[in-house]
Design a protein around this nucleic acid. Structure first.
Lengths: 193, 193
DNA sequence: TGTACATCAGTGAACGCGCGTTCACTGATGTAC
DNA sequence: TGTACATCAGTGAACGCGCGTTCACTGATGTAC
């Protein structure tokens, strides 16, 4: 049942899109290859043509999915809008299209070396992107600020998702949003270095 | 092979201790009941006498394990010592005896209602404990401060564990520790309301 | 342009394995007399 | 105190099921002439 190159590339994309969503929604060990390829409208066998293994797919889905997340956030030009978009009920309620660090962070230590390295690159690029919105003098200082801001953002979403009480969850988001916004000294953004 | 009440209670404790450690080290879906009871020196069947199901064990291990964590941290009387102990390489490198929020946070949204409720109680008690170390006037203000501090602490450990580069991991810890310590205005601790 | 054929994306049966749970059984404990 | 027996913590075989991966096969695509 050979298919055209275009169709094959499209199938590959569909697998990646479904995988990036399902891994974030259900966890790496929480979703199987059958369900993964079912969601892409294919059978499990074709995973191995394209990616070699579930781990290989995870690695690609991470790279590809992160590129999409970054593109979606391309318009964000200030720390305020980044914080507001990230520490939000919408992000909390849609892990499938949200941040990989918040969705999979706890599982990453148990993944393959390849996946962990890819993930580390994502953390670095997130740091760089947030650092670019910081106002401190010196790149290292901005990066350190970014690492602290990033940890707060990730922790807020992890806790807000874990908690079983909607009001408490909203409060976790609000308290962290406020803390982060009051730390952001430049409401017009981009007055960096 | 009936055993004495004392022996049975001791076995129950051993299961709980092993489960609390292994769940944190390998994740809820990352460890099976056979491995869990093997670590306690028993066979899988006895899980069902004591806890009814893997989920029931998870729930009990969470309550019991958290009580132990709290007891270990009983001596901590200032925000500074709490931050220093939590945002540390030792905590990062020993998930099995560390914070449940950092180890299992991402997996909790997919757990049973019972487990999620127990976990929510743990988040609330952690908030209360940190709030008691805060200096703001008004309980609600202290709790909001605690929620922001807690999210930063959790996020820092999650990211530091996920990352594949020791130096970068250390830097994540250092940046967050510094941020949290500079926010703590009372180095002698306990000057609260 | 038309024909012959090699390529290979995708299929689906099958693999061994571990999962969580059930249940008939064992035999020491704890109790009733 | 000694004996008979009910209790029940723990055992281990068995359950159906889903896991990740392999592989012989299919048949449309893409290419060589």
């Amino acid at each position: 049942v050979r298919v055209s190159k275009e169709k094959a590339a499209e199938n590959r994309e569909r697998i990646l899109t479904a995988a990036a969503r399902l891994f974030r929604e259900r966890g790496v060990s929480g979703i199987g290859v059958d369900a993964l390829l079912d969601a892409a409208g294919l059978t499990h066998g074709s995973l191995y043509s394209h990616f070699g293994s579930k781990d290989g797919l995870m690695d690609m889905a991470l790279s590809d999915g992160f590129a999409r997340v970054q593109k979606n956030a391309a318009g964000i030009k200030s720390l305020e809008s980044a914080v507001t978009a990230y520490v939000s009920a919408a992000h909390r309620d849609n892990p499938g299209s949200g941040c990989f660090m918040a969705a999979l962070g706890c599982e990453i230590p148990r993944q393959s070396k390849k996946v962990r390295t890819t993930f580390t690159g994502i953390v670095r690029r997130n740091m760089a992107r947030i650092a670019a919105l910081m106002s401190a003098r010196g790149e290292q200082a901005r990066e350190d600020q970014a690492l602290a801001t990033m940890a707060t953002m990730v922790g807020a979403i992890v806790l807000a998702r874990a908690v079983n009480d909607r009001d408490f969850s909203d409060r976790i988001l609000a308290a962290n949003r406020e803390r982060l916004l009051q730390q952001a000294p430049n409401p017009q953004g981009s007055e960096r270095s």
